[in-house]
Simulated assay, not measured.
Amino acid sequence: MGLLSRIENLNAEKKGLLARASELKSSGDGDFCKVLENREDFPAFAEKNGFDRSGVFSPQGDYYFLSETQNLDLNTIVSSLSTKDFWTGLLTEKKGWAVFEGEKLTPLFQFFSEEMKEKIRKISILPVMVAGEVHYFFAINAINEGELSDAALEEQLEPILNRKENSIGKKLPFDEEKLAEGFSVSSASLFIISAKLTLENAFRDFASPFKELLKKTAINQLYAYLKTLFSFPNCCFSGRDEEFKAVIFSKDETDEKLLQFQLNLSAKKFFSSQNEQNLLVLSAGICPNLRGTVDFLTRD
């Protein structure tokens, strides 16, 4: 689904940038960025198994931090740091699902933003053993925690939680033939999307390593949001630091300020703030060929 289908009440004269390439959309292609992924990431795992909002608390020293997220916001990630003692006291049993409802939710609410707490009726938690350490997978308002065997969930989560380095964005192998189809409409308009200032401010009070770990979680969640806004063959990839790279094919000139406005409007569910400039968009030029566009997406 394209970016402008997520935006309401735009003036008619401000026709959407991504909608201008609508002639390239075809049934069955789906989200271009999903086509590019050759391995399952956490949001894909969660969606496949029927979860709507979920995450994983992972150990680091004497603490736990939110290492994986699905449809959670920045304030929740900022609030997620906790101690091992908390989890030991909360879950005396280290196997099987623990379900928290009603007043039992109170100790868990400290980890969620005000916006997220309004959506929570139940939290289901499953301890998962990975490389000799306990991680805590949780799902908000899950209705199917009893339908999946614990062993099956652990088997699916293990390669996600045990990977040494996140391999989204520039490290993805991608189908250059799919990207090449955009050049039948226009040259590629290249953009850099930056969340650096907002994320630096969000984690300024954290010390290492949690500042870096939680920022990485936030970047991954933001990328999961952003990539759904670009319809085939337009695409968005995670770049270096807190930057993302985008490619748009359009017969009309692409207005970076309008693109910035649209992206910020769509990303409010992640940032949950009144700041309308959480994302900055900069034009990186026009590229008339596939090789240059690929180099832009993959280089540091």
Rank of each mutant, 00 (worst) to 15 (best):
F42C: 01
T92Y: 10
G89I: 02
Y64H: 13
W87C: 04
S79L: 15
F42R: 01
K95Q: 13
R53F: 02
K94D: 13
S67H: 03
G61I: 01
L66K: 04
T88R: 15
Y63V: 01
K104H: 12
P59G: 08
D73G: 03
F100L: 09
S54T: 13
K48L: 12
G61P: 09
G96L: 11
G89D: 14
E68K: 12
I77V: 15
N71P: 02
L74Q: 05
S80N: 11
K84D: 12
G61M: 06
L105F: 09
L81T: 08
F45A: 09
K84W: 09
P43K: 02
G96V: 06
W87K: 06
A98H: 15
G96E: 09
L72C: 04
K94E: 12
F65M: 08
L90C: 10
N71R: 14
F51W: 15
L105P: 11
N75F: 14
N49F: 12
G89L: 06
R53G: 01
E101P: 01
F100C: 09
A46Y: 00
T106Q: 14
G55E: 03
F51Y: 15
N71V: 09
L91F: 13
K94F: 04
N49K: 12
E93W: 01
L81R: 10
G89P: 04
D52A: 13
T76C: 08
P43T: 04
D41V: 11
F86K: 03
G50Y: 13
K94T: 15
L66I: 11
L105H: 06
E68F: 05
V99N: 10
L72W: 02
D85P: 00
I77M: 09
K84E: 14
G50D: 07
S67M: 06
T83D: 11
P59W: 04
N49C: 07
D62V: 00
S58D: 07
Q70N: 14
T106D: 11
L66S: 03
A98C: 06
S54E: 04
T69N: 01
G89M: 07
S67E: 01
D52S: 14
K48H: 13
A46R: 03
E68T: 00
A46C: 13
L90G: 00
S58I: 01
F42G: 00
